[in-house]
Design a protein around this nucleic acid. Structure first.
Lengths: 107, 107
DNA sequence: CGTGTAAGGAATTCTGACACG
DNA sequence: CGTGTAAGGAATTCTGACACG
């Protein structure tokens, strides 16, 4: 996992980075737009990816979208990303086979 | 600044990531091996770069080095990096000039 | 619906000191 | 020298609720 994905940032710092209030950040979690991890004590921990997601959420809310609409958009994007990754995997395997066979063609 | 360099991680998380005790982490700061930022309230904040540095420190201490020796090594590396970056800058400018002039040669 | 706030408690962090070796 | 620990206090975070609209 990359640094961008590691959940290590507390809500206070996320609040500074995004300009959002802690109240807003917790509310977006309640609406299932964001999914922090927790320390054993219960403290929320966010990733830089989460920070970026939060800024996108803020933009969409300013555009008049409601949280459930934003959630649907995000879930759709997540599905599309999965599909794209599967296609990428298949493409990679085909490429590997092509390069593996190519030299034998020359014989 | 990249995610790797942003000081956003609290000492408890750093302790988990590195396996070092908070006592150790604070002590290495006292010995000027590591330089966290502070929140307005005084809470230390570290970067992923700091986390990596801390793991290198731990390795060197296990090898029997003392903190002041580690500091000297780190300071030397820092100077060398600066020198390397300056050379890189110069190289970049020379390259830019070369590519900029090349087409005119053809006229 | 999305956000602010006051409330009380719990988790987290801070510093300076004593201890051991 | 490097690290553990108990001590007391301060900063940070948590939850559930009331408020407004």
């Amino acid at each position: 996992m990359t640094y961008k994905e590691r959940k290590v940032i507390t809500i206070g710092v996320v609040s500074e980075l995004t300009g959002l209030s802690e109240r807003q950040i917790r509310y977006y979690e309640e609406r299932r737009l964001i999914f922090p991890e927790r320390s054993r004590g219960g403290t929320r921990k966010y990733s830089f990816d989460d920070v970026e997601t939060l800024m996108e959420i803020a933009d969409k809310l300013e555009d008049g979208l409601q949280t459930y609409e934003i959630r649907k958009i995000n879930e759709k994007e997540k599905r599309q990303n999965k599909t794209a990754m599967r296609e990428e995997m298949i493409r990679g395997q085909l490429n590997a086979r092509f390069h593996f066979n190519a030299p034998t063609v020359k014989n």
